[in-house]
Design a protein around this nucleic acid. Structure first.
Length: 1023
RNA sequence: GGGUGAUUAGCUCAGUUGGUAGAGCGCUUCCUUUACACGGAAGAUGUCGGGAGUUCGAGCCUCUCAUCACCCACCA
């Protein structure tokens, strides 16, 4: 076998991966020799995604765990798949439609658009799975799942799957259990995507904003005495006012104000509580008057202490309005523009005024239909409307004014009155995908009653059934779950699981002879299928309804039932109305889809065939979840809640959280910064193994992840080192025993390295058990390079070239065995190069990917005597080399070595390893002497002192300096040891073994010190 | 405003129950010695962010200050 100079990763990786995949090496249960399962669910990447450094890191860890367990004989499954990623995917397809000049989504219609999405998925969806193969991921690709598989919209020929069944079943079950409900709530609305989003999808970002101060005049020109006091109760301001001052960062929402709220203890406003004030905007003739109410919410110390209440556009106001029964007027349409529908403003304002005066009863539906936007502002974008409102109010003189020094035309400072507008930082909500300002909107949505299902998920962690690593994640987890809000799960999108709820629309003839439509308070049923829904309605009404595509629009409703359903044939759809009149009945399915995370939450079992009875369900519950800290709430917590809510089990026992992967400087990677590292580039340049080793090495629990190309390069070099160790075996023509068993050895050298191997195997296993992947990587690096290559291979040379055939044969066997152990232990981290060497080195029964993971123990294999002896030999070589280098003995020169006071152990060690020592330290002979000659380099060792007689050859001053430096270091150590041992409290309170160790150490160091001093004395005699 | 974590060699970071500091890269010098220059040998560099405390003993535990990072949060 003639090996290449280095491992050709680019050529070998694809070949090796194909070999594994063709052999089915990663299939669920492959290489299983026991019943215990080990299952990891891949966090499904977005179907739109491509592989980035975060995935690369993540996957390395999951693959290490999976390969390790597979080699141990577990029945393993690493389950791959893709997430349909509702918003992100819909966005990408819409963009694609635009770029390719195809009709817009809304023009295509739902069915055609979904066809496009599926086409797009078929064309692009496999990218990331191909990229993952380049990392060496050992997932069972034949099982790859998709969170939209089995959906009604899925085309013929799409890979089968039943994830949709799981989603529907869970929705229906949770609905029936009262865990999902529908309601009109204030939700975060994304005006770009025109959908509701959950709290978690909102990013609060501090931006430059303004706070305007406006006067809301009191109704009927009424006045009151406004008094301000300081902390001590002294009056600082007393004036008669005919208005109340309001501060706002969102003037456009004034149009929807339902009240002004002040704190009940606020004396300043006590005189006017219960009175009406006027919203200072809109047509003069229809200025709306709203009540001044009290509520605990306003902070007396902030702003003017008075807060305008716009229930439909602010979360705090919403709560106040709910408490106070204040109408919440929705001002905007789905795009965030001021509403243009509804009745003329004159009519709406009149109705609103009647409500404010308490003359008119109202309900939710009625308020929802009212448009309080004056004609002048209708249709304007919300930010445009803001500008107009501010300008209009200011022009009319209702802005609160303040004075400011301004330079006049002559450049002189002069006091001027200007509108009081504070420039200040405000926290503004942005959509995490759309990056537009989120608008709180009052809409009908579906919610998961999280408070009802959060308990078991909290208990899982509190009771230790599920462990979150690092531990700090647990506190974060508790905090969020203990303060959990209802989860809005409906999205006004098309790409996703359509909500399995059907609404009934009925009509009947009113007293006045007109038809009326029950739409808002409509009846609905949740059902897994349309047939089931039809049956429920039929049972309920005693008639079979017809099915229509969707609800009649507002305008259609105004025009009447016949128009709204003009294309529908009503046939049997006749019901007895609440008035005893004949009516009509149609049903339609909720057009909304579910939040992507609702389906992701079912990933731990939805991928295993559930709800069908599937053999793969043996892998549930899974074992470890490895994911980024950023989706602890989005995904991890929800999987835990949903698994408990549906199957009453925890989905995994361990959650391994990691941070965002950053660049070498610790900065977030971003395209704009241009610091993005593409893992595929790294693989191209250094091979997947190098990238993986680098990932494993930085995987300190809870650590910051900084990826550096230099590091990756270093681990490529490590791979080459391993490669060359095999070149070494090749070069020395060490025979291939064929899957060598651990040899029985008699040579100290071989006993030692076998013991070292056992130690590293234990270290690696312990590190892997504890998810300390960096420890595993470091231990293997140090063992392979620092022990095997640096010492064992070097030590073996004289034996391999020597005449002792028995020793040679034993060493050859040991060397082969040790190199094999390196491959096996390194395989989970560096699968490619190890598999390649495994195949090159020998003819094997199995591929390395299925090799048996060793179980030998250090307790059995470490030979204490061999260990001590080899460490002594290594020390002697190290010290001799060091001394030589420092007194400038030419590196190639062989020198004689003297020794004095060598004890039996030292003598035996020397005898056993003389050839090795002489070769590695470049020694030509060893002579025992009673005392060293003058001008001799001193090398103190345990059990004897060595010397190199170099009178006349060495730089005496340099050697004295060297010894004194060593002495100085020793002095520090001695000082510490003596200090401790002389302290009676230490001797009394420290554990015995610590004291004993210190004493032994002191004796050793004192001996060294004496030797060094003697050495210096000898040199000084010459000088 | 609340929470979490960080601060250790020039750089990037380890350091598991307190026993007296390590790795990789970089740097300096030497070496093309028959596995490997993606290499070998030798070497330099740290009052472990500041201060206080507990302890015989603190990088590690407690308090405090400083700086940084991230997460959560409704201040109109």
């Amino acid at each position: 076998m003639a090996m290449e100079k280095t491992f050709n990763a680019a050529e070998a990786e694809a070949r090796i991966y194909k070999m594994w995949e063709d052999a089915g090496a990663f299939k669920a249960g492959a290489n299983a020799s026991r019943d215990d399962t080990f299952c990891i669910m891949l966090p499904p990447p977005n179907v739109t995604g491509s592989l980035h450094v975060g995935h690369a890191f993540n996957h390395t860890i999951m693959d290490m765990l999976t390969r390790w367990k597979r080699m141990q004989g577990y029945d393993t499954l690493w389950q791959p798949g893709l997430d349909h990623a509702g918003i992100a995917t819909q966005l990408m397809v819409e963009k694609d439609l635009m770029e390719t000049q195809q009709p817009k989504r809304t023009d295509l219609g739902r069915e055609k658009f979904l066809e496009k999405v599926w086409e797009w998925k078929a064309a692009k969806g496999g990218t990331i799975e191909q990229q993952a193969r380049r990392l060496g991921d050992s997932m069972d690709w034949s099982r790859s799942a998709f969170t939209m598989s089995g959906a009604e919209s899925a085309p013929e020929g799409e890979k089968p799957g039943n994830f949709h069944d799981a989603v529907l079943k869970v929705f229906v079950q949770m609905y029936n259990d009262g865990l999902i409900y529908r309601g009109k709530r204030l939700v975060n609305w994304d005006p770009h995507f025109e959908t509701a989003i959950s709290d978690l999808e909102v990013e609060n970002i501090e931006v430059d904003g303004h706070m305007w101060h406006f006067k809301y005049p009191l109704a009927g020109g009424e006045t009151y005495e406004y008094v301000e006091k300081d902390e001590d109760g002294n009056v600082t301001l007393r004036e008669v006012r005919d208005y109340i001052s309001i501060a706002t960062t969102r003037p456009e929402t004034m149009l929807g104000d339902g009240a002004v709220a002040v704190h009940k203890d606020d004396e300043r406003y006590a005189p006017i509580v219960g009175k009406l004030c006027e919203i200072p905007v809109g047509p003069k003739d229809q200025r709306r008057q709203i009540p001044i109410i009290t509520d605990p919410y306003p902070d007396m110390t902030f702003g003017s202490g008075a807060v305008k209440i716009t229930g439909a556009h602010d979360f705090n106001d919403y709560e106040v309005a709910k408490r106070g029964g204040i109408p919440m007027y929705n001002l905007m349409d789905t795009k965030g523009a001021m509403r243009a529908d509804g009745k003329p403003y004159v009519e709406e304002a009149t109705t609103a005024q009647a409500i404010a005066n308490g003359e008119q009863a109202f309900d939710e539906a009625m308020i929802a239909a009212m448009n309080m936007v004056p004609e002048d502002y209708r249709g304007l974008d919300r930010f445009e409307a803001r500008k107009r409102v501010v300008a209009d109010i200011t022009a009319e003189g209702n802005a609160v004014m303040t004075t400011k020094m301004v330079k006049n035309d002559e450049g002189e400072e002069a006091e001027t009155t200007v509108p009081y507008v504070e420039a200040k930082k405000i926290m503004q909500p942005f959509g995490d995908r759309s990056k537009v300002v989120i608008e709180p909107m009052l809409t009908d949505q579906w919610f998961v009653d999280t408070a009802k299902i959060v308990g078991p998920a909290l208990d899982a962690v509190k009771e230790g059934r599920t462990k979150i690593m690092p531990e700090s994640g647990e506190k974060v987890y508790y905090h969020w779950l203990e303060n959990i809000e209802p989860w809005c799960i409906s999205r006004q999108l098309w790409w996703g699981h359509q909500i399995p709820v059907w609404y009934g629309v009925t009509s009947w003839v009113n007293d006045d002879g007109n038809r009326s439509f029950d739409l808002n308070g409509r009846t609905y049923f949740c059902a897994a299928t349309e047939a089931e829904a039809l049956q429920k309605f039929t049972d309920y009404y005693g008639r079979t309804p017809i099915v229509v595509d969707g609800p009649p629009s507002d305008s259609e409703l105004r025009e009447g039932w016949e128009t709204a359903f003009s294309n529908a044939t009503f046939g049997e759809a006749v019901v007895a109305s609440n008035k005893g009149e004949e009516g009509r009945l149609a049903i339609y399915r909720d057009p909304d889809v579910l939040d992507t995370w609702f389906s992701s939450g079912l990933w731990p079992f939805g991928t295993l065939g559930w709800p069908a009875e599937d053999e793969a369900m043996k892998y549930f519950p899974g074992d470890v979840l490895v994911t980024g800290q950023d989706i602890l709430f989005f995904w991890v917590a929800r999987m835990m809640m949903m698994s408990q809510a549906v199957l009453e089990k925890d989905p995994f026992h361990t959650v391994y959280l990691h941070q965002l992967v950053r660049d070498a400087k610790g900065e977030k990677m971003s395209k704009t910064k241009g610091n993005v590292i593409d893992p595929l580039d790294m693989i191209d340049a250094y091979g997947a193994d190098a990238l993986r080793f680098s990932n494993a090495q930085m995987a300190a629990l809870g650590g910051v992840l900084k990826i550096s190309e230099d590091r990756i390069k270093g681990y490529r070099n490590f791979g080459t080192k391993l490669w060359n160790a095999f070149s070494f075996a090749d070069h020395y023509q060490i025979p291939y025993p064929g899957d060598p068993a651990k040899p029985d050895v008699s040579q100290t050298l071989n006993k030692w390295i076998i013991g070292e191997t056992a130690k590293v195997r234990e270290t690696v296993d312990a590190a892997m058990e504890a998810y300390r992947f960096n420890d595993a990587a470091d231990a293997l690096y140090a063992f392979t390079w620092g022990k095997v290559c640096d010492w064992y291979l070097e030590f073996s040379k004289p034996i391999l070239q020597g005449d002792d055939t028995a020793a040679k044969a034993e060493t050859e066997q040991t060397l082969r065995w040790v190199l094999d152990q390196c491959l096996i232990l390194l395989h989970p981290i560096m699968p490619f190069i190890t598999e390649e060497l495994w195949g090159l080195a020998d003819s094997r029964a199995k591929m390395l990917v299925h090799a048996d993971w060793p179980t030998y123990a250090a307790a059995d294999l470490v030979d204490a005597d061999a260990d001590r002896e080899m460490n002594w030999v290594i020390d002697l070589i190290d010290n001799t080399r060091s001394a030589r280098a420092q007194v400038h003995v030419p590196a190639g020169a062989k020198v004689p070595l003297l020794v004095t006071g060598l004890d039996a152990k030292g003598q035996s060690a020397w005898d056993n390893s003389a050839a090795l020592i002489q070769r590695l330290a470049r020694i030509e002979s060893l002579t025992a002497v009673d005392s060293f000659p003058k001008g001799c380099v001193t090398i103190p060792m345990a059990g004897g002192t060595f010397g190199i007689p170099l009178e006349g050859l060495i730089d005496v001053d340099a050697e004295i300096a060297r010894l004194e430096k060593t002495l100085q270091k020793l002095g520090k150590e001695l000082g510490g040891l003596r200090g401790r041992l002389n302290n009676p409290k230490f001797v009394a309170s420290a554990p015995d073994e610590v004291v004993a160790e210190a004493k032994a150490n002191l004796a050793l160091r004192e001996n060294e010190e004496a030797q060094l001093k003697a050495g210096i004395a000898r040199l000084q005699e010459i000088g």
